[in-house]
Nucleic acid binder design. Structure first.
Lengths: 224, 224
DNA sequence: GTCTATAAATAGATAGAC
DNA sequence: GTCTATCTATTTATAGAC
């Protein structure tokens, strides 16, 4: 890595690789793998096409690098929540809020993930698969913890994962066209504000996980 | 339409158009718009490429025809449920069960819809948009009806639509790789059986919609 | 490490015969 | 209505100069 010692601040650091990676992430999110051309990625990164092949070898392996990059960042962020010393109900609320926040900060993630799902995961290699699994485990772990502590009802963590994370993905993917949707369907955009959406999901989970015959606790203000 | 009167049963009816449509639906679902070639569609329909241009003019308008076809069928099926003389809670349960059933019977729908979402709906024309909206309205109508009757809690129908329909779409899209996922993540596949999934969603909605301080009613056996 | 060709393959679309 | 042949443009990938 430290092959070329730098002097002036002029040419950006080991910049080129990550510049390509960022450009590729944006393009793949926008158009999907097949419709994205290496030329466009190069143009966005303000490089030449050959530069990409020099650094990544092929379009495929560049795409794989993008996937790993994305899931690593997302996972790192979410895993921390499960480790905090909080009640399971709190953790779950935070998981939801953090997922929405992190996904909003990296708007390329949702479209890419959804396309991967539509593809039946055919492009996912072993490593990427493991990275995705880590995120699943983070959430199911929290639910299981709550069940073991007798604080949650007997709900299957996998199913709750399905009904929690995926509405978020769709929510994130449709964010850019949110106001257009609201206009055409004739409802107030504010009904889809992130705070309302997060609160809805948190309440959904609280009510679903409330032990039978126990009062439903109120969600805390984690998201706001 | 009735240009050529038929005699023998030999050459299939006005078959060719629908054969192309079916082939196109399968291919677009499998690979997405960009990665699908007109040649492959033709091959699957056992026709020549030129046949497709004769009937549909371009790859784009063929794709549009596929979208309209899909949403019309799906919508027709779901709208009926809202019109049945049932309690809102019942209707909602049936809506969920019917959505899963119909989506399973037409496995091409989910991947295509998810790719469209990832695309930001850029390929959707006015007509298709209306067809999608009809499905949204079907569900939000049921929820609104329950609220008006004082049988449901004060939950935003749009948000409930988000958290109901989209987990189903993901569930359907991942169906082909369900067992692979279960194996890698090391849990029993049966936990993702359609009946369990439907029951989970129904319970989620029941608990969420239960009027405050009222007992949560038990889901009826609509799905089983 | 970065760029300028350019090779090689592929895919959307059309012309025109039958 | 259906097919063969072909045109044209695009795109992945590489060779080779700097």
């Amino acid at each position: 890595m430290a092959t070329r010692p730098r002097r002036g601040p002029r040419p950006a650091p080991q910049d080129s690789r990550s510049r390509i990676l960022a450009a590729a992430t944006a393009e793949f999110a926008l158009r999907g793998f097949a419709a994205t051309t290496v030329d466009r990625i190069a143009a966005r990164a303000r490089f030449n096409k050959a530069m990409i092949y020099y650094h990544f070898g092929s379009k495929q392996s560049l795409y794989r690098a993008v996937l790993r990059d994305i899931f690593t960042a997302m996972g790192d962020h979410l895993v921390r929540i499960a480790d905090e010393p909080l009640a399971p109900g709190e953790k779950l609320d935070r998981f939801v809020a953090a997922f929405v926040a992190e996904g909003s900060a990296r708007p390329e993630i949702a479209p890419i993930v959804l396309r991967e799902v539509a593809e039946g995961g055919r492009r996912l290699d072993e490593e990427t698969y493991t990275l995705m699994l880590r995120i699943v485990r983070t959430m199911t772990g929290i639910v299981q913890e709550g069940r073991d502590a007798g604080q949650f009802a007997d709900v299957d963590p996998i199913l709750l994962y399905l009904t929690t994370v995926w509405p978020i993905m769709i929510y994130l993917a449709t964010s850019p066209i949110r106001s257009a949707i609201a206009r055409v369907a004739r409802f107030d955009v504010h009904r889809l504000d992130p705070e309302r959406f997060v609160a809805h999901l948190q309440q959904l989970n609280r009510r679903t996980l409330a032990p039978v015959d126990a009062p439903v606790s109120r969600p805390t203000g984690v998201s706001s």
